[in-house]
Design a protein around this nucleic acid. Structure first.
Lengths: 195, 195
DNA sequence: TGTACATCAGTGAACGCGCGTTCACTGATGTAC
DNA sequence: TGTACATCAGTGAACGCGCGTTCACTGATGTAC
């Protein structure tokens, strides 16, 4: 799944966008410290020397890549939720079913950046951490909009905590157990908050 | 808080234990890739060359440090739960109150290893991942024993997912917001599962 | 009890390697006339 | 339309540094007689 190319026009903007797209996937696959700049550039089809024409530092890339990953998966999530709602699901059930879909177990590379990196966030510099924080808040806001009208305000936070924790822990288990976890989490969440 | 020294007798065993104790805190503070061997050894009051007399590789240290961190915090958790129960709390309320105590926001160094490292686990080698997996299972087992008799089997998994997710996300927020998250999580969990 | 020697735990220099960052350069693209 | 030049994006060698790992050595501890 390639990232959404925003309205880039010049060659340089397209390259910048390509580096960002690669980095947004790399940080989710390998963590903030998992891959060096040289390999990120190589995966974008470039040599490492050109990096600093696009970003002032590695850290600046991490900030932008965090934002990018969040926006990309937010868009995908909304689209799939729409499809599920078109089949008759309530907004919250559509959200939970999409967010905790079995295919999210592998391919963390294309999944939610919060799940992929949450435990690393407190160790990052302020700018990276606050970019990640913004993605957490966006996720809470999305859940809040999806809950039935009149739901208690704290429910959105709890649903997010449960979804993030469940997917993270499911990924630490063998595939079969992980799927059972996710199924349990989907059913529990829908029963608790969508009744 | 120092780790529990098991029945070490010889000088070498004591040193081995000291390295492990330092490493178990370092991985929670800085992540699996956050600090090099030289600094771990220095924090244990040694020079880096001596490391390989105690462990066959860095990876082997990560495995043992994961186990050690889990056992240490498991013991602390049980002790504090006991104190809370002595004041009249139910086992589950004691667990939630202890696990999601405000003082867990800082000092991840002395907190639950699952919370500190969950999103890094799928990127580790098999032996490290399976040590971490064992700590997840131990946490689920502890929650299961603490739930009221007759609780549905899936509840322990969900409570763990919620506790881990809530503490992780609370740590990404500014301290004040983090405390509010934790308070909300404690109240919600107790209301949901301890009624 | 005292001396001689073996064992052991820890030291510190060295290795090859990959990292983030810098920079002089190249070759392609675009503009001026 | 064609030539001359300026701009620009990307190249690749080089830097200093910290990493995991190895190893010859030292000095302290323990054992034998």
């Amino acid at each position: 799944m390639m990232g959404v190319m925003s309205g880039a026009t010049t060659r340089k903007q397209q390259t910048h966008d390509r580096i960002l797209d690669v980095a947004s996937r790399v940080i989710r696959r390998a963590g903030y410290n998992g891959v060096g700049l040289a390999n990120i550039m190589k995966e974008a089809g470039l040599t490492h020397g050109g990096f600093y024409a696009h970003f002032p530092s590695r850290n600046a890339l991490l900030v932008e890549a965090t934002q990018r990953a969040g926006r990309d998966t937010g868009a995908v999530l909304l689209e799939r939720m729409g499809q599920a709602q078109a089949k008759g699901m309530s907004p919250f059930s559509a959200l939970v079913t999409t967010y905790l879909a079995d295919d999210q177990l592998d391919n963390a590379e294309c999944g939610c950046v919060v799940v992929a990196l949450a435990s690393e966030v407190p160790r990052q510099t302020d700018d990276v951490a606050s970019a990640a924080r913004a993605r957490v808040m966006a996720l809470v806001a999305l859940v809040r909009r999806s809950l039935p009208a009149g739901a208690e305000p704290g429910h959105a936070q709890m649903a997010v905590a449960t979804m993030v924790g469940a997917l993270q822990l499911a990924r630490t288990l063998p595939a079969k157990d992980g799927k059972a976890w996710l199924a349990n989490a989907r059913a529990s969440l829908i029963q608790q908050y969508d009744a």
